[in-house]
Design a protein around this nucleic acid. Structure first.
Lengths: 214, 214
DNA sequence: GGGGATGTTGACTGACCAGTCAATCTACTC
DNA sequence: GAGTAGATTGACTGGTCAGTCAACATCCCC
């Protein structure tokens, strides 16, 4: 029936599965994981209730799949960036760009990941703590290297600095998700620059040496 | 029966209510809001199931109460700090200190607030979006003032900068909550300094002017 | 010491929903 | 075109749990 990629996929397996995953993103984003029913996902996807359980063992597994799909892409990107011979500022800029672009292209998915996984200490966050922490650790490693190279000051624990960097980005996304910050192409582009400039360069103007500084 | 503050409180109303709230903090922190039952709260508090509904209209109202109690204390502190005639760095430092100390003194409560409210875009976060946003706005105002005064560079949108600051703190708490960062007196003290130093001064060492800098 | 108000109890109910399953359909093989 | 394997359907079930309520306890005022 559907003309696209019938030649690529040996059997027609992936279509409906993907349909369900994409529908789940929309439903989770709109109602939240706990508040929605599995039937909402099936309805949104236009398939029968039972089909969700043909492709996924449980409601949880649907969210797990969505999270891991995206997070692993990010981990790959971070590793790629890390292996390049470019300044830290550019490395961090590439990561910030990736995350902001991810939100730009699929805000619902990023909303779900942040709201339902990344901060969900008692449910999905706990399940995926290893995977989540890996990203923090990779960024931390990058920063540590920059400290050893003299580009970053050594007195700030690299792990803490990594959290500052990632926390800044995630809070920007949160601001967009909650409608507290202006969205749009220009704002997204500006945000990428801002994250790097804030975390690397700081908010203080270079000219003035603060009176209260040690 | 209980000797403490029987003279202070006209009637013995507050005791059991407080008991329930404190028990709820522990239960929410341990199991999560959605995963726990109201009977868990009652059991933890050592009171009958129905009593929870004598003091609170719903399970939701228990969490609402916990969040508002704490968040309003923070809003008061931010307003107080804002009205003082001290450098921005000290103002931001005072806010960071307050939040870190809050976590130090009652990690469970802060865990619940961050995990269940601050990022819960589809449930409690949405309900309290006004109250939450007020904190961001106050911090943003502080930063804007510092920009006008020349202490902070003007090219970074103050609202975005406020998110960077708050996001950094919240991510540190998240790191502690998930067991990804070391906890303890020294680490908490160090974290306060780190937040301010990172956000105000940046990660880059002053000496080196980056090759890639514009 | 009567009587109203407030505090406290826990069994019960009604709704809700994740997950099951037997039946039906589709597509491909030989 | 019979046979098989996987895809798809949706009615049903079993357990869970928020919130109700009627009864009992305690306190305090007159």
């Amino acid at each position: 029936m559907s003309p696209e990629r019938s030649a690529t996929s040996r059997k027609a397996i992936p279509d409906k599965r993907r349909l369900i995953l994409d529908a789940a993103v929309r439903v989770f984003a709109r109602q939240g994981f706990h508040a929605c029913r599995v039937s909402d996902i099936a309805d949104e996807a236009g398939v029968a209730y039972g089909l969700v359980y043909h492709y996924f063992a449980s409601k949880d597994e649907v969210l797990d799949t969505l999270f891991l799909e995206r997070w692993n892409v990010m981990l790959d990107l971070i590793r790629d960036v890390d292996s390049e011979a470019i300044p830290v500022r550019d490395k961090l800029g590439a990561i910030a760009s990736f995350i902001v672009d991810s939100y730009h292209h699929d805000p619902d998915l990023m909303k779900v990941i942040i709201v339902e996984v990344t901060r969900a200490a008692n449910s999905f966050g706990d399940t995926h703590i290893g995977t989540i922490g890996e990203a923090y650790a990779l960024i931390g490693g990058m920063i540590e290297q920059a400290q050893q190279g003299g580009q970053f000051k050594p007195e700030i624990d690299a792990r803490f600095a990594a959290m500052a960097f990632y926390g800044t980005i995630e809070q920007l996304l949160t601001g967009w998700i909650f409608g507290l910050l202006p969205e749009g192409e220009e704002h997204f582009e500006r945000a990428k620059w801002l994250v790097v400039e804030t975390v690397c360069g700081g908010l203080e103007s270079r000219a003035a040496d603060q009176a209260g500084a040690r």
